[in-house]
């Protein structure tokens, strides 16, 4: 299965849905900072991998799939929830990539320039996530 770019999906997303993601992201980043201030970096760090927007994303994915089926005259409730499950499978691979991101920042940050470390960690997240997703495609 090939990866495709569907720019039309941007137009299908309502402004309110973009606003919700922005709000969630902003709030979680603020709360993470406050937790680190109150309880220290060892606790605050946990929240750097908080599934901040996953519930919102899964909800939107399920709703879009349901609406698509509804427009075709089919009850798409179960199909929408299957789409959310697929989203969760991708997020599971992404979470392993997230561990690679964290490990690189933890080990390299103290002795290397911060921008280079953050870029390397982000690239590692993407590489590990795509590799796992691709392996799943090959092995199934």
């Amino acid at each position: 299965m090939y990866v495709k770019l569907n720019l039309a999906a941007l137009a299908q997303t309502k402004p309110r849905e973009y606003a919700i993601r922005f709000l969630f992201g902003g709030v979680v980043t603020v709360v993470t900072g406050l937790i680190a201030d109150k309880f220290g970096p060892a606790v605050g760090g946990l929240f750097l991998a908080f599934p901040a927007i996953f519930p919102a994303t899964a909800t939107l994915v399920a709703a879009h799939e349901r609406e698509k089926k509804y427009a075709a005259g089919i009850d798409g409730t179960a199909r929408g929830r299957d789409a959310a499950a697929l989203e969760a499978r991708g997020a599971a691979f992404g979470a392993i990539g997230l561990a690679a991101f964290a490990a690189i920042v933890w080990r390299l940050l103290p002795d290397h320039p911060a921008p280079a470390v953050l870029i390397a960690a982000a690239v590692a997240w993407l590489a590990v996530s795509i590799l796992l997703w691709r392996l799943r495609q090959i092995l199934r």
Binding site: M1, V3, K4, L5, N6, L7, A9, L10, T13, G25, V28, T29, T32, G33, F47, L48, A49, F50, P51, A52, I53, F54, T57, A58, V61, A83, L86, E87, A88, R89, G90, A91, A92, F93, G94, A95, G97, L98, F101, A102, V105, A114, L118, A121, A122, W125, S129, I130, W133, R136
Partner: peptide
């Protein structure tokens, strides 16, 4: 949002977005 298939797009549900913002 723009990537397909759905399982691939899901990778971005666990993107290091909060991590990058907070760490920076």
């Amino acid at each position: 949002t723009v990537l397909k298939p759905r399982s691939f797009a899901g990778l971005f549900g666990a993107a290091p977005s909060v991590g990058l913002a907070t760490l920076a």
